[in-house]
Design a protein around this nucleic acid. Structure first.
Lengths: 217, 217
DNA sequence: GCGCCGCTCACATCATTATGCGGCGGCGCC
DNA sequence: GGCGCCGCCGCATAATGATGTGAGCGGCGC
């Protein structure tokens, strides 16, 4: 999938740490270190110039801090993934970073191997963060209205059929359903055939679409 | 430091997985498996009876599902930590789980060692989750604060890609799309490949599910 | 002009799904 | 007891989808 290396840009005001991060990333196959800067004063021009895929952003920096840098990056080029680096897991910083669209949040003491993992994860669409920070995020999460849909329309599907339809909606394949439910592949086929008949559809996508739209989930 | 073992309770309807989880946890020093149940019909009485510190809760269960079980636990005994287990990291489930107060969210395919780590983390006040799920949580987050434009970002899908995704949702096959839009089958494949990459899915059903749930239609 | 991106197309290969045929045991109903 | 519905299982074939590699063309921005 990835034809080229992942381009990584570092913002870190501590020269020692900047250097060691540079060495770490520079010496890793699959990664290309496109820059290691001590501040993000020129972040707006740095990004288009260096075209990073992933930015490692220290939060505590003189001048423009990491949160502000993050905001500017996300405002101009939201595609670029930004992983925040910090020493403390303080609530307020996490909150601000999350609101500003951070794609990950790691402690500086994160071991090198984990850091490299994290870059891979963020490239794969993940959001690396330490469990402690994840907890902060969950705590910050407001508890808004859960758009509760009322239970309705048995849609003449049997309980088993509804169950399997639910799994299809979740993206399960026949194989996965069979394995997860401990039944044979042929049985899954059998159930799905009947579901199709009852819903008057002829493919998984139609069934999923109908299920979601009619709230059979 | 722990004077007593961590008491763990499992809810998992798949007998095979339930058994292997039981063996894993039962054979781990520092953990005490207090139960491994196939459904959470009696969750309100299970908890005070078994007094778990940590609950591993499968999301997809017949009868009372994991989200509902989670809510009931949190309503009665919020101190108990609940880690959700699921096969797929779909947006809606994550959202519901987070809103209901889940303390962690892991994939079933999580390797045993990681699972044990996760139990330790949650006991230590962390919130174990996979990076991909963490990302979901972050995506869910900024809504209430909305520091800037909400711009429901078409998920960086190009116009053509959205168009084709729309047809998938309608239940069109590759062939039908090709014919309908007057392009070749291979072109349809090509577009869909890119859609999958951008949505981080691997099948039509997942794409359709994601599209409908994220309102890309 | 050059590079990047979106859109187009082709060929190939393997995996999964769709469909039709059948069979078995259990359960509730008249 | 027969009948219908449900859940389970198997085999076989054809169609469709998933993934990789590669390539041409036109527009846009620097």
């Amino acid at each position: 999938m990835e034809a080229t290396d992942t381009r990584v840009l570092i913002y870190e005001d501590n020269p020692d740490l900047r250097l060691s991060l540079s060495h770490l990333l520079g010496g890793t196959p699959g990664l290309e270190l496109v820059g290691a800067l001590g501040n993000c004063q020129q972040v707006e021009t740095d990004i288009p110039r260096l075209k990073p895929d992933v930015v490692l952003m220290d939060i505590d920096m003189p001048g423009i801090n990491g949160i502000e840098g993050l905001k500017r990056i996300k405002a101009a080029t939201p595609k670029v993934s930004v992983v925040m680096l910090t020493v403390f897991e303080d609530n307020d910083r996490v909150f601000q970073a999350v609101c500003a669209g951070a794609d990950g949040y790691l402690l500086k003491k994160t071991p090198p191997a984990k850091l490299l993992d994290a870059i891979g994860e963020v490239r794969a669409g993940g959001a690396p963060m330490t469990p402690a920070i994840a907890r902060q995020v969950l705590r910050l999460f407001p508890k808004p209205v859960a758009p509760r849909q009322q239970e309705d329309s048995p849609a003449n599907l049997s309980a088993r059929e509804q169950e399997i339809l639910g799994l299809l909606v979740e993206g399960y394949s026949y194989k996965m359903i069979a394995h997860d439910r401990g039944i044979s592949l042929d049985t899954v086929r059998s159930h799905i055939k009947k579901i199709y008949e009852k819903l008057h559809v002829r493919s998984m996508t139609e069934a999923v679409s109908k299920a979601l739209r009619q709230g059979l989930t």
